[in-house]
Amino acid sequence: MLKTLLNKIFGRVIWALPFIIALPMQSFAQAEQTGNEATSITFPSNSAQAWLAKMSHAVKSLNYSISFVLLKPGVDAQPYLWRHGVNEEGLEMEQLNLLNGPGREVVRIGNKVSYFEPNVPPYSLQSSIINGPFPSELFLRPEKLLLGYEFIMVGRSRISGRAAQQIRIISKDKSRFGLNVWLDQETGLLLKMNLIGQESQLLEQIQVTGLQVTKEPDPFFAKIEPGMLPDVVNFSPSSAIDSPWTINYLPKGMTIVKRDLRRLSGSGEVVEYIMLSDGLVDISVYMQESNNNKPQSNLVGTVQTDTLLTIQHGELNITIIGKLPAATANAIAKSIQRVN
């Protein structure tokens, strides 16, 4: 009964052994060529980590042009063009362009990201990633996700006409949504990404429709004049605030990346703001002492893929927004307490 299954698994492992042994040699040979990347590849080369390391290296070092479509429930499909190039001096250049409507254009030259959007004067940020529709940190530092997520090799399939390796990314404590990622077998670049809810329902999807890897960077990048890009906006570093509140529960791998007091631009109300991040999702927590004149009911719902939870908890009105299950948002909100 079960024996046949076990036999088969062992049979395949033995069959695959020569490959498992042969592959690291190959990757070492490659690593020596690339030099400085060798230190980061320490996993067996056919593991999910190795695949994500390969992706991360490809995203940073190749000249590519990718067309993809972002799909969210209840919203029109959003087509994007994503180009990346490295010039002779080793400077990274990246462009992300929303192709429908008035558009949204983001250009990154090294550590300066410039945003050109309708209704907002153009501005630049000092950052090494574009804040786009995909989790950029996953591409650049997949190892950072290991704190809170598990990487699982699933299998191969065909995506966008190319052979693809599927990898599943699941939160270790099952407190966040999972991710299914398909990577190009040849280059390691992303071909498809599904955000999966806890009942395995599809929440958001990125589907690559065209992928070109070229020797030279796209001629588009030669036309950019770095001097013409808008100035960098400097936010005054938020001084450490002395808050009477503390969050006692954070999902595994999630940390507080930002905390300040801010006046909301819409209503002028002052709230305490905390941003939580695990490298894959960013979550906003707003805290406000509740006011008897403004009673509010507890609400939970989803806005596109973001979960929104607003509850009255003790003396506080707490609102949490982000791509996380409502139960987790509730657990975070309920764990907020006054420090004695």
Partner: peptide, 23 residues
């Protein structure tokens, strides 16, 4: 309340937009 929620949503979007990451 709807208006307040709207403000929070807009602020959340802004926060994500202005998030900077140094490698």
């Amino acid at each position: 309340q709807r208006r307040r929620i709207n403000t929070f949503l807009i602020d959340h979007k802004q926060q994500l937009r202005f998030k900077t990451t140094q490698l």
